[in-house]
Each structure stands twice: as C-alpha cells, then as structure tokens.
Simulated assay, not measured.
Amino acid sequence: MVLRQNILITGASSGLGEGMARQFAARGRNLALCARRTDRLDELAAELRAGYPGITVATRALDVTDHARVFEVFDEFRAELGRLDRVIVNAGLGKGQPVGTGRFDVNRQTLETNLVGAVAQIEAAAGIFREQKDGHLAVISSFMALRGFPGNLTAYSASKAGISAFADGARLELGRLGITVTDVRPGYIDSEMTARATKRNPLMVSAEAGAQALVKAIEAEPKRAYVPSWPWVPLSVAIRMAPSALLRKFA
C-alpha cells in the first residue's frame, strides 16, 4: 500500500471531513484542510497541531462553488506542502425539497455544490496529479447514488449519482497515468447533516466509527467502497432490485 503523506480534505470544518482529519492526524499525516467556516477550521487545526506536533496542518477558506478559488487553493496547498498525495473531495450539502414545490433554489444549490463544485475539485486535483504522475483521488459520494429517491432526497441523490459517474469516468481516464480514483459511498453516519433528520435511523453509526471506517476504506484505495461495509454492501444489492413502491417510503 502506498503511503499518502500529504492529504487535502475539503469540507473539513465539521462532520465527515473533521472526523477524517482527526483520524489521518493520528496516523501522522500532513493535512491541508479547507472549508467555508474558518473559525471552526482554525480551532480544529490548532487542536491537531497541539495533539500531533510532528505533522503540518495547513488551512484555507474555501467555498467550492467559487470554482476559480478551488484551483487557487489546491495550488497553494501543493506549494505549501511540497506535493499533494491524496485529495478527498468531501464538501457537500444535504439540502433538498420535493420537485415542483417552488424550491428550485434549494435543489439548484445542492446540485451546484455536490456535483459542479465536486467536479471543480476533481479537475483541480487531477491537474496536479497529472503533473506529479501520481496521486489518489477519493470522492465522497453516497449510498443514495444508487437510485433516484423521492421527496427531499431527489436533488441529493441525483447530485451523488452524477459525481459517482464522473468519478468512474475519471478513473478510466487517469488510471493509465498512475492516478488512483476511489468512489466512496457512505451510508448513514452521524453528522450535522444527518442530525437535521426528524427520525433517528437505526442504521446510523457514530461519527467516530464512521470516520474510522471511511479512513480505512480510503487507505485501501479500491475503485468503490460502501462505508461501513456492513450493512451497506448487501443493502446496495437490495436497493438496486427494490421496487419503486418501496423507494417511495423514503419520502
């Protein structure tokens, strides 16, 4: 297994990004962390520097819908750390509203962040990796990429299906250049995003357990990973075969 020492994580101020940053710091990796909320990001960076004085933790403010800035920040991180070994495309939104209810603005925001913003990150990372002739790109998609879902999940599942498809295409293109691409599809992991749900899902795992599972999967660098593998690998098969009537219960 290749040691990826310098790791860039977007959306690192909370949730899965923060959890992964903590896990990689504990493994002695240098981190390039970016997010919109710099106050929380700076607090995390200070904590990690104090807890793991042997690592470098660089930070930048970044809204991934500012596409030009995505490229600038990634280049700045590369210059600061010397190189980027792994980029984790994690920043995203869980918002959405039922189709035709007058909230195109919300659904557009989800698609612009989770799909177009993620594509900008992939492009920026791939450009750097092409120059280095090496690198690992981990794209945080979702279990919801498997099918279209109704209600508040329609835009979200569409955005994740789109970015998973883009990651698949990028893998075919970049693999021959020595660049690895992993499509990571988390199930229900406790975070700020999932905390907004009105019902507690019995399949939810804790934030720490979820972050550990994510990092373990990313380190293995497979083409695709459902995280945690249990129960999401067998459920991925079931969801593909599920009748539409069952999917409507997600609304």
Rank of each mutant, 00 (worst) to 15 (best):
A138V: 10
I239M: 15
D39N: 01
R196Y: 08
T113H: 02
N201A: 06
A251M: 03
A161K: 13
I140H: 11
D75L: 06
I9W: 06
A118E: 04
N152K: 10
L33Q: 09
I140T: 10
S142F: 12
G92T: 11
N201R: 01
L3W: 13
A155Y: 05
L62H: 02
A207L: 12
S236Y: 10
Q132W: 00
P234V: 07
A126K: 13
S236K: 14
R103E: 05
L93A: 06
H136Q: 15
D168M: 04
G210V: 00
R147G: 02
P234T: 06
A79N: 08
R69N: 03
R147A: 02
A118S: 13
L44V: 11
M241L: 15
T59L: 07
T194Q: 03
I88G: 05
G148C: 06
G117L: 06
I189T: 05
S229C: 06
R240L: 10
T113A: 03
R108Y: 12
K216H: 08
E208K: 14
E47C: 06
R200Q: 04
Y52Q: 05
T56K: 15
P243S: 06
K249Y: 01
S206W: 13
L16M: 14
V139L: 07
E221T: 15
E18P: 00
S159H: 14
A220I: 10
A61N: 00
T65A: 14
G15F: 05
S159V: 14
L235R: 10
A68D: 13
A120W: 02
V139D: 01
R171P: 12
T56S: 15
Y52R: 04
G117S: 03
F104H: 03
R69C: 00
R176C: 06
M20W: 08
M193Y: 07
V106M: 11
E173Y: 09
N114I: 14
V237K: 14
L146R: 15
S13Y: 01
S206N: 11
G178E: 09
D75E: 12
R49Y: 00
R49I: 01
R78N: 08
K160I: 00
K223I: 02
L153T: 00
V87K: 15
L93S: 11
T182I: 04
T65W: 10
Q121I: 01
P202N: 01
I88E: 03
H136T: 11
T59I: 12
A170K: 04
T101N: 13
L153R: 01
L16R: 12
L177A: 05
T59M: 08
Q5L: 13
T110M: 05
A126D: 10
V89Y: 06
A12F: 08
L115K: 13
I128H: 14
L247W: 08
A25Y: 04
K95T: 09
V73E: 07
E192R: 15
R147W: 06
M1K: 09
D85S: 01
R27W: 01
G94M: 13
A126C: 13
A91R: 07
V215C: 15
N152M: 04
L3M: 14
S244V: 05
A251S: 11
V73P: 02
A167D: 11
